[in-house]
Design a protein around this nucleic acid. Structure first.
Lengths: 143, 143
DNA sequence: TTGGGTGCAAACTCTTTGCATGCCC
DNA sequence: GGGCATGCAAAGAGTTTGCACCCAA
């Protein structure tokens, strides 16, 4: 059980949500994910446990979690959204996407974050969040 | 008629594609777009001219253009892909997305590009391309 | 007891594919 | 004339919505 799982369950309770079994199961599945997962992958992960959760509930719960900023949703361009927990303690990161095999990998870079922070100050726009995607070929695919 | 339009039509010919009316119409519509547009918006833009182009053709043509790197496809998270011409002469840019009204605006930042270039060298991954998305609220929505 | 939580199925949207026809070369 | 190009319609995939039932508080 990761810290995020507890954190998220607490935040949900704090936000006035009741604790249904489906919600708990989805939160726990997200807590176990290594990197950005699709809704279907999360659904499958939930089903690996004893509990079965309807697909619609998975989407609804992910939407709530996103609104509470417990989860970040983003798209790597294959037409399928991906979801990833926002761990308040852990390092903020972005993603590398292999255009050949579709694999998604995380990376972190302080220099990049600095550049974005400076940029966010200058722009005539209130920046709440950002995403960076690097596309290319992973080691395995490059051979 | 923008330079990109001519460039793209030339590149298509060079790549061995025949010049159909639909393809030309889509390329010209893209040449007139200010910023990233959805397939539907591009279809609508084409239909504003005299020529009507089937929806499937719009998608097929956009796919070809993307493969030839004449167009970049990306997603700002509303589940709908957006397409934008890749102008070899013009400045490389990224996007600001207003989470309230959905507006997409371009920006360019050399500092950010530098950080990404340095990062791309360091990472164990062959980086061909990158995308940066800043999310937040635009001036109009912030009121 | 009451209203949010959940599952199922249907609806919706965006995108892709199959196939017959048309047109460029 | 041959084969890519195109349009139409249908199929697919992902996601959302409607609605009835259930359960936590």
């Amino acid at each position: 059980v990761s810290t995020w799982t507890e954190h998220a369950l607490r935040a949900l309770t704090g936000a006035g949500y009741r604790r249904g079994g489906a919600r708990r199961a989805v939160v726990e599945a997200l807590g176990r994910q290594r990197c950005a997962a699709t809704a279907r992958e999360i659904e499958a992960a939930v089903h690996e446990g004893d509990r079965a959760v309807g697909r619609a509930s998975v989407y609804r719960i992910l939407e709530e979690l996103e609104r509470l900023r417990l989860v970040q949703r983003f798209d790597v361009g294959q037409g399928t959204a991906r979801y990833e927990r926002v761990d308040p303690a852990a390092e903020h990161h972005h993603h590398l996407v292999c255009d050949r095999c579709g694999r998604v990998m995380p990376f972190a870079d302080p220099g990049l974050e600095d550049a974005i922070a400076r940029l966010s100050e200058r722009v005539r726009f209130e920046v709440d969040d950002h995403e960076v995607l690097l596309r290319g070929s992973c080691r395995a695919c490059r051979g």
